[in-house]
Amino acid sequence: MSIQHFRVALIPFFAAFCLPVFAHPETLVKVKDAEDQLGARVGYIELDLNSGKILESFRPEERFPMMSTFKVLLCGAVLSRVDAGQEQLGRRIHYSQNDLVKYSPVTEKHLTDGMTVRELCSAAITMSDNTAANLLLTTIGGPKELTAFLHNMGDHVTRLDRWEPELNEAIPNDERDTTMPAAMATTLRKLLTGELLTLASRQQLIDWMEADKVAGPLLRSALPAGWFIADKSGASERGSRGIIAALGPDGKPSRIVVIYTTGSQATMDERNRQIAEIGASLIKHW
């Protein structure tokens, strides 16, 4: 058993032996400061991975655009179909130039040979490839079927209504393609630790998130040596930015963190910096 498999397999085991986890309101002070700095709403939640207890939250039940963070949920739905014998990670999917949409750094290189379902999930999560996400959405029946999958998990909040890139429109008060921090954190925890997916599929999902290559300026920039993080970021119109993550010290995840912001006029660099500073406060007061 690899170190990674050891880590995921023991998450339920550690729940019975973990020390009490204490919240630190200092992080919420930073979240509120980020709102002031960005001139935008910020949603935040910090969840204990083992118990599911909410440690801190700010606007946990307000809607925010999901942006590309939905791609983790999408690959969770794909893995659920794999577990049920309805899909194979090794199945190759062929597509054409007409299928390519904006920001497809991986799929645009494989027009001649296509990509496997496994490769598409990797591209969608680690590189946020939009065509990969659309191709995967097609395999499960489209955005409405992803919403149905989430409903069956008990998440009646999170919804996907459109495809890439239209889902990134982020119109104020538009509930399409949105979630709430509390709903996203709970759903992510179920995917990573619950019985919905097999152990192998849970491991695969967290491996893809751990290999994320496009979230460096966010929480990863504040991470001390030896800490673990598996994450997925997102960005969209109207100053929207977000990240969902499982992270913790000693090389294993122990908390879920979800951060969303929307409605800012700030630059992408400034949005990144504010999220990184929230992460730094979280780690300092861990």
Rank of each mutant, 00 (worst) to 15 (best):
K252R: 10
G242M: 01
L197I: 07
M127K: 07
R202K: 11
A124V: 04
P224W: 01
D269C: 08
A183T: 09
G194C: 10
E175S: 10
E108A: 11
P20T: 07
L196R: 15
S57F: 08
G239M: 03
L160A: 07
P60N: 06
V214G: 07
R220E: 01
H94V: 14
Q86S: 14
G85R: 10
L79I: 02
I171T: 14
P65T: 04
T267V: 07
A182S: 13
A9C: 15
R7V: 10
E145K: 13
I244D: 00
K213R: 12
R92V: 15
I206Q: 12
H24R: 08
G242S: 06
T126G: 10
K232N: 00
S57E: 12
G251A: 09
L120S: 02
I283F: 12
L135A: 05
T138A: 15
L137H: 01
S254W: 06
A266R: 12
I229S: 00
G239C: 04
Y44L: 08
A40E: 11
P172R: 08
L167P: 02
Y103C: 06
T187M: 05
D231V: 03
A183C: 06
S122C: 12
A200G: 14
A215T: 07
P253F: 06
H110R: 08
T261A: 10
F58C: 08
G263N: 15
P172E: 13
R92G: 04
T186I: 14
D83Q: 07
S240V: 02
H24Q: 07
Q86L: 11
A40R: 01
P60I: 08
A222M: 10
R241F: 03
G279C: 10
R7A: 13
P60Q: 14
R220V: 01
M268I: 10
A40L: 05
I11R: 04
G39S: 10
F13C: 12
P172K: 08
N50S: 15
E62G: 03
A185T: 02
R273C: 08
Y103G: 09
D207V: 11
P105S: 04
D250G: 14
I54S: 05
P25L: 08
A266T: 12
R118I: 08
D212C: 04
D174S: 05
A245L: 01
S254Q: 14
E237G: 10
G226K: 07
S221H: 10
P181C: 04
H94T: 15
D36I: 15
A34T: 06
K213Y: 07
T147S: 08
T186N: 13
D161A: 04
L10N: 05
I278L: 05
I243G: 00
L89K: 02
P60R: 09
R63L: 07
D269M: 10
S201A: 10
L146A: 03
R202M: 06
L197G: 01
L219C: 01
E175V: 13
D174R: 02
A170L: 10
S128R: 00
S240Y: 07
I3G: 10
A245E: 00
C18W: 10
R238K: 13
V257L: 07
A9K: 12
R81Q: 10
D250N: 13
T147I: 05
C75V: 13
S201L: 05
K213I: 08
F14G: 07
S57L: 05
A170V: 13
S264I: 05
G114S: 03
R162T: 09
S122R: 11
E237A: 14
T158Q: 11
S201T: 05
I243Y: 06
A84D: 13
G242L: 00
I283S: 02
L219G: 01
D269T: 13
R91M: 04
A246F: 08
S221M: 08
R220P: 01
L219Q: 01
F70A: 07
S2N: 13
I93T: 03
D174V: 03
W286F: 05
D231I: 03
A182P: 05
L73F: 06
E87G: 02
E61T: 13
V82E: 03
D177F: 01
Q97P: 14
S254P: 02
D269V: 11
S254T: 13
K232T: 00
G85A: 09
G52A: 05
E61G: 14
E108D: 10
R118N: 14
T267P: 14
A183P: 05
D99C: 06
S240R: 01
P65I: 02
G90S: 13
A215N: 03
I244E: 00
A245V: 01
M127T: 10
K144F: 10
G142V: 00
P181H: 00
I140S: 02
E270R: 06
P224S: 02
A133L: 00
V8Y: 15
R271W: 04
P249Q: 05
K30S: 05
R91E: 04
R7C: 08
H285P: 00
G226D: 08
W208M: 03
L167Q: 03
L136A: 03
F6V: 10
N168R: 02
N98V: 13
G85C: 07
L38A: 04
I54N: 04
I244C: 05
L136T: 01
G141E: 04
A215P: 03
I3D: 08
K109Q: 15
R81S: 07
A182G: 14
M184I: 10
R118K: 07
S80Q: 14
I171V: 13
A200T: 13
L137A: 02
Q86R: 14
I206Y: 08
Y44Q: 00
E119G: 09
M153Y: 06
E46V: 10
R41M: 09
E164V: 01
H94D: 09
V78A: 04
S221G: 07
L10P: 08
H94P: 07
